[in-house]
Simulated assay, not measured.
Amino acid sequence: MPKAFLREIISATAIISGAIIGAICSYLIAKSTTNKSVRVQNEIFNESRKLEDNIRRKNTCQYANILQLDICTAIFQSIRSIRNIESNDENKYPIYIPVNTQYSKAIVFLTDNFNLREMSYLYQLYGIIEKINYDIKDLNYNNNKDYK
């Protein structure tokens, strides 16, 4: 065998083995990098999900407290109004029932926690409160008959 042919075979074998070793190393590096990237993305996703759950839980508590405060205030203001009417006091003052204007947003946010009937009751209760407030705004306090 001629020496030139032997050199070409050795050179070709070195090039092919170098390409194979380079391909294997590139594959292992790419695989390792991809696995690390997927692991980091999963950790970020899980942390994001936990954060969203915490925010949702806090918002649920906040909106439930708003609804509770509105309902309790409506009850207490109604009792004060009834006592004021029954006292026959000449210094009658208007009693307005303060209501959160964003109550529908609070109710919609809590739809996962209530069934349809309970949601309907909440809307009806707010409808009654708004009707009472509307009647109080149109009330003539100088006319005793209107007040009663």
Rank of each mutant, 00 (worst) to 15 (best):
Y96E: 11
G18T: 02
N140Q: 04
R83F: 14
Q62I: 08
A30S: 15
T33D: 08
Y147A: 04
E8Q: 07
R49Q: 09
S26M: 12
L69G: 10
Q41L: 13
D112K: 10
V40G: 02
N59L: 15
N100D: 04
V40D: 14
N88K: 13
Y121L: 14
Y121P: 00
A106Q: 01
S48N: 13
F114M: 03
N84T: 07
K3N: 14
E118A: 14
M1D: 05
D70F: 01
D112F: 11
D135W: 04
T13E: 00
F114S: 01
R57I: 08
E47Y: 06
T13V: 12
T111F: 06
Y147E: 02
R80L: 12
T13M: 04
D70M: 01
D70Y: 02
V40P: 02
N115W: 03
Y134T: 11
K105I: 10
T34D: 06
S32E: 13
R117D: 11
R56E: 09
A74M: 02
S48D: 08
F45A: 15
L110A: 05
N65R: 13
Y103M: 06
Y141T: 08
E47H: 05
P94F: 06
S37E: 14
K148H: 09
E52Y: 06
S104G: 08
S81K: 05
R56C: 03
S11C: 08
S104T: 14
T101I: 12
S87F: 00
K137D: 13
S104D: 14
T101H: 11
Y123K: 09
R57W: 10
T60H: 03
V38M: 07
S32K: 12
L6M: 12
E43G: 03
N35R: 07
N35P: 01
D89A: 09
Y123F: 15
E43P: 01
R57A: 15
K36P: 03
I66G: 01
Y141M: 14
E43F: 01
Y126E: 03
I16D: 06
N143W: 02
K145P: 00
S37Y: 09
N142M: 07
Y121R: 08
K137S: 07
I16Y: 12
K50P: 00
D138I: 10
N59I: 10
